[in-house]
Design a protein around this nucleic acid. Structure first.
Lengths: 256, 256
DNA sequence: CAAACTGTTCTCACTCAGTGAGAACCGCTT
DNA sequence: AAGCGGTTCTCACTGAGTGAGAACAGTTTG
């Protein structure tokens, strides 16, 4: 009939999670009605859910009556992937001190790279990637490093799909990309020029732990400065070494 | 009988949230059995919940079979208080570049300060506060600034309780603290010495938006360098000004 | 200023999804 | 081979969740 949508088998928990999921994408604040629409739930159900989540601290009602994600979720989120983020962070900061270029650390989540940490100052605000943000795997240096770490069947399947082209220069031809991925595997690093944004260049290296590429460390700066890549490479290499060493060690910080 | 515990009126949603809440405090990974114990839920119920959360991406099963908070929660959390964190961050980094001392930004959550951002490198690892961590309001400079912004009834109620003393020097006498809070209100800043950790000094200023203290900006360094406070003060002041200005403006970054 | 919207809050009888005791199972240690 | 700590799954019972809809509130419109 065209309107069952949020069909059946929807467990209470999944409904509650749908409410939270409604905030993904369209950030900022939402009215109960809009949450209901995005979560594809009846208004009264949404209303109840929202209140329960609010009471718990998962949602927060703004002064305008709209709801936002609450700090309790944020706090909980800080526990995710803590080992990697905690161990890596100080060295990312060291690298920034050295280079004063945008530094980032990303992991793979499905078919995208997820930016888990990022260092930047007010001089060079990030343009496309943000902490907690996602970008496609084929159009950034960190993405290609993460893609290159996957088995062939994954890479092939990834490249088989319709690939987005954020700039006019973005490579989307599967055959060329296959070659580029092979290069990344051989060289142990990736350099992309104007693939995600014009006038931007990025370099990235894999961070390996227990024989697995767990994340990618990258640097982004203006494309015309491509000659400086060689200057940054040893610093990137050194940073990765330190992160990998720190990952292996026992905890140094307080609390677990 | 002595064993009702997780009595009644427990909604399904609240149970699911209890499962997530089980990860608060004892970070790292938990077995299903331990989650059940912490959440005070029957094992089979917990089992079901955990699976549903895992499927959604809220929990992640590690290679050791234990569960951890998943990145989906982390991503969601990035939406909480985004305005403040996004606008303030670049200026915190600028301040760090200038001073190379630990910089932090905290908000008040209940009777504690919650550290929402923090800049540090490998040279000076944070000792007590961590991003996503909480500390009492009376024992840090940021905490006192946040406390001073509250109405008298709140301050009085807060000071009436049993106050923890992390160091031998921590002031817990309500009368002295009342005076110190008055000083903070008069001066517009707070300086605490060895209140949270020996050999540590912290300075903090309030960040005001729409006439409300929304957070506190702080700097921490070694107690014996207390003379340098005056050197840092104008830099702190300038950073706060820039944050407040940025908070007022329209979004500069992508995606509202 | 009434009518038409858009959104919020709440009620209530029905019923289906959630429940949790318990059994089976799986690796370990001793 | 018995014990232990953990996981996974089943199933009959029932009360918690459901959602249509009514009442209400605020704001836009002709």
């Amino acid at each position: 009939m065209g309107e069952p949508e949020q069909v059946r088998g929807a467990s209470v928990t999944s409904r509650a999670l749908s409410v939270l999921g409604a905030f993904e994408g369209s950030s900022g604040s939402l009215t109960v009605a809009r949450i209901a629409a995005r979560a594809k739930l009846p208004l009264s159900t949404t209303y109840r859910m929202v209140h329960e989540l609010e009471e718990w601290g998962g949602l927060r009602k703004g002064s305008d009556g709209k709801y936002q994600v609450g700090f309790r979720i944020w706090e909980l989120g800080q526990l995710a992937g803590r080992r990697l983020r905690d161990r890596a962070h100080p060295f990312l900061q060291d690298l920034f001190d050295l280079t004063h270029e945008n530094v980032h650390l990303a992991i793979r989540e499905g078919t995208q790279s997820l930016y888990v940490d990022k260092i930047y100052s007010s001089r060079k605000m990030p343009q496309v990637s943000r902490i907690g943000g996602r970008l496609p795997l084929h159009a950034t240096a960190v993405g290609r490093v993460l893609l290159a770490a996957q088995p062939d069947w994954f890479v092939d399947a990834y490249l088989q799909r319709e690939l987005e082209a954020p700039t006019a220069k973005t490579v989307t031809d599967p055959r060329i990309l296959t070659q580029l991925i092979a290069d990344v595997r051989r060289d142990g690093y990736s350099i992309t020029i104007e693939q995600m944004r014009m006038n931007a260049l990025s370099v990235a290296l894999p961070v390996v732990f227990n024989g697995q590429t767990v994340s990618a460390l990258g640097l982004v700066f203006e494309a015309h400065r491509y000659r400086e890549v060689q200057r940054f490479m040893p610093q990137l290499r050194g940073t990765v070494d330190r992160i990998e060493f720190a990952m292996a060690g026992r905890p140094l910080t307080i609390g677990e």
